[in-house]
Every structure is written in C-alpha cells, then in structure tokens.
C-alpha cells in the first residue's frame, strides 16, 4: 500500500505571493494546521504551519526555557497581535522548507519521514513534483492499523 491510498485529494494550498493575513484567513476558515505553499507551476516550495503563524503572537523564546510551568499569566504578551505591516508580508517570509513524499512512497517510509522531521502533515507530490494531496500522521497511522484486521481474517 502506498501513501496515495490514504491521502486527502482536495488539498488546500496557497501561492507563494499570498499575504500572511490571507493565509491566516484560510487557516481559520478551513480549520487546518498546515498549508503547502506552491509556485506558479503548482510545485510545493514550502509549507506554513500553525506554529509558524503563532510565533508572530508568541515569539520562539519560550523554547529556550527548560519549562514554563511557573508562568501562570503571560501578561502583556496576551494583548500583542501582529502589526498590519507584518500581516501584509507574503508567506514566503514565514514559510519553512517543505518535507514532501512522492506518490509511490510506502506507508512506513512516509510515517518515518514525518517522525524524523517532527511534522504532523506532509504534502504528497507527483513524479513531476506537482502537488497531488496531503497526508497526516492520523491518515497514515489509521491506514497501517487497518491492515492488522485484514491479517486476522
């Protein structure tokens, strides 16, 4: 079984010139956690995740701390929202390199890649590199689990 068997086909993606504001709108409307960013040829050039978006609200300094258990109230951070200038920048300034798999990739390899790169979702591309769909830990995981019951029969 390969990764196309468990991917979502109607994938929502954004063009590289999309603004951060428009991207935020899509995240909210579609209730998703990852947006592949594509160029004019529909090839994924990066991804933008919920976490990347939220660094604009809560900068990454929290990762330098061993823990934040002792912080009960983030105080002034709560009222800081990204400025209009930030929101009007393109997603290119915020996106991360895309971790993708080709359509013939096996399930376990796809799962291993997700773990290795600490991702939850991953775009699937055709042999020509075009965006075909998107798959997630849950998609791949449930596909793997379902094979256990087939073996029982």
């Amino acid at each position: 079984m390969n990764v196309t068997s468990c991917m979502k086909h109607n994938v929502v993606s954004i063009h590289i010139k999309t603004t951060i504001r428009e991207a935020a709108n899509i995240f909210v409307k579609k209730h998703i956690g990852l947006l592949p960013v594509v160029d004019d040829d529909d090839k994924p050039v990066g991804v933008i995740g919920m976490r990347d978006m939220l660094t604009l609200e809560l900068p990454d300094f929290v990762t330098f701390l061993a823990d934040v258990d002792f912080v009960h109230d983030f105080g002034a951070v709560e009222d800081i929202h990204p400025s209009a200038k930030t929101l009007n920048k393109t997603v290119q300034t915020l996106m991360k390199p895309a971790v993708t798999v080709e359509e013939d990739c096996g399930l376990l390899r796809a799962y291993a890649l997700l773990i290795q790169h600490n991702q939850h979702d991953m775009p699937v591309v055709s042999k020509e590199g075009k965006l075909m769909g998107i798959t997630s830990r849950v998609d791949i995981g449930t596909a793997i689990l379902s094979t256990w019951f087939k073996a029982d029969k």
Partner: peptide, 14 residues
C-alpha cells in the same frame, strides 16, 4: 539568565 529575562520583559510588556 537571558531567556528568562526575555520572558519576564515580554510578560511586563517592555
């Protein structure tokens, strides 16, 4: 000291 300084300043809003 620096990371917790950043946190404190962010919380205070300075």
């Amino acid at each position: 000291i620096a990371p917790v300084t950043i946190l404190i300043c962010e919380i205070v809003g300075i």
